[in-house]
């Protein structure tokens, strides 16, 4: 089967809208549980709509490539097999983990993903702050592995939709902690709050889609601490709500760096190095920020010291 019988995300959209309204009302009743800033909300939702529109422009290429790869599949996997659905649930989620980790650790993919992290808020509208440029950075090729194994393209697209829908509800401060067995296995609001935080302790942690087990397995898990509230956003927060700046600012910064690059090695690092890499070391990567934070923790004499 090559065509998905339904679009999971489109089907879930009315529920997204209803839940956002409910969260806004909850925020009105108890400001500690949710906060919305109108311009931030508008930007997040417009990014979501833009993502659908720009995604549609590349959807044909993605679908055609997936079908082409599936025609050279290793195995014949039936869409009616329960075992196949269980297998794709785990495999798709594992691919999502590595896609998401790549999207944080290499600038070329971070340039597309950064917009999802650019809000200083963490509410259900933040979940819809999605990329406009994800279709052109080639990250979708990671899912071709599933087609090559033999999972029908329709099955892959349904499972990707399921993952996206699951990740919607975890973008909330309204739910503090869920029962321990659930927190141990599943990605939850608490785990994903950590992922959206810019505190050095929390940077580049909890890349999970549906299952948090991958972070536990690959050493990127960080629990949320009551004594360190999440400070949402990116290391250098954005100075406005213009959606074009939100969508394109890292690409613009990369282009500017490339124009100044003095060697092939600099070109490589400005594109595929970690976000924050600079030839003169004047900027900080997540790793640098964590090391500096750790050394401040280890020297209680005080944080203030050098010039910028």
């Amino acid at each position: 089967m090559e065509k998905a019988p339904f679009d999971v995300v489109t089907l879930a959209t009315p529920a997204f809208i209803l839940l956002i309204i409910l969260e806004m009302v909850l925020g009105k009743l108890d400001p500690k549980r949710a906060s919305y800033e109108p311009r931030d909300t508008f930007a997040s939702l417009t990014m979501g709509l833009g993502s659908q529109v720009f995604g549609a422009l590349t959807a044909g290429v993605v679908a055609a490539t997936t079908v082409a790869v599936w025609r050279h599949r290793l195995f014949d996997i039936s869409m009616t097999s329960a075992v196949a659905w269980i297998a794709i649930f785990f495999l798709e989620d594992l691919i999502y983990y590595w896609f998401h980790r790549l999207s944080h650790e290499r600038r070329f993919w971070w340039a597309s993903h950064v917009n999802h992290h650019s809000s200083q808020h963490y509410n259900l509208s933040t979940a819809l702050r999605q990329t406009w440029t994800g279709g052109v950075n080639g990250s979708w090729c990671l899912w071709l592995l599933l087609a090559f194994l033999g999972f029908p393209p329709a099955m892959i697209f349904v499972e990707k939709g399921v993952s996206l829908v699951y990740q919607f509800w975890i973008h909330t401060e309204a739910i503090k902690r869920l029962p321990a067995p659930f927190e141990a296995v599943m990605n939850t609001p608490s785990h994903h709050r950590v992922h959206h935080a810019r505190n050095p302790r929390y940077l580049d942690r909890n890349f999970a889609g549906i299952l948090i087990i991958w972070d536990r397995l690959f050493g990127t898990f960080e629990p949320e601490r009551d004594d360190e509230p999440c400070d949402y956003g990116v290391v250098k927060n954005l100075g406005g709500f213009n959606v074009f700046r939100i969508a394109l600012h890292e690409w613009e910064a990369m282009a500017r760096d490339l124009l100044r690059a003095k060697s092939l090695s600099e070109v490589w690092n400005y594109v595929f190095g970690p976000p924050g890499w600079s030839s003169d070391g004047s900027r900080k990567t997540s790793k640098d920020l964590k090391v500096a934070w750790q050394s401040r923790l280890n020297s209680p004499a005080g944080s203030a010291g050098s010039s910028p």
Partner: peptide
């Protein structure tokens, strides 16, 4: 939704 978020002022 943007109007509602302005109206509810949270």
């Amino acid at each position: 939704l943007t109007g509602l978020s302005a109206l509810l002022a949270t």
